[in-house]
Amino acid sequence: MRKVYNLEDLDCANCASKMEEAIKKIEGITFASVNFITQKMILEIDENRFDEVIKKVIKTCKKVEPDCTILM
């Protein structure tokens, strides 16, 4: 399932690519792209495990860039 999320307060471009790297490593994510300029995140998530995976994504985001929030 492909989902697009808006991000708020994603302040640094380098963090965006770090976030992308980290999210890509989460199990259940087949594709991740974090765009600093459009402040958007595109994810391909395993539908069957959506809730579990998205929780991990939020946690990872907070870890890499504490200021940034994912708008659901």
């Binding site: 640094c12 471009a13 380098n14 965006a16 690519s17 765009n35 600093f36 300029i37």
Partner: peptide
């Protein structure tokens, strides 16, 4: 040491 110049300007 920060590659910011590149990391921002290229996608921009």
């Amino acid at each position: 040491s920060c590659p910011c110049a590149l990391v921002i300007s290229i996608p921009l």
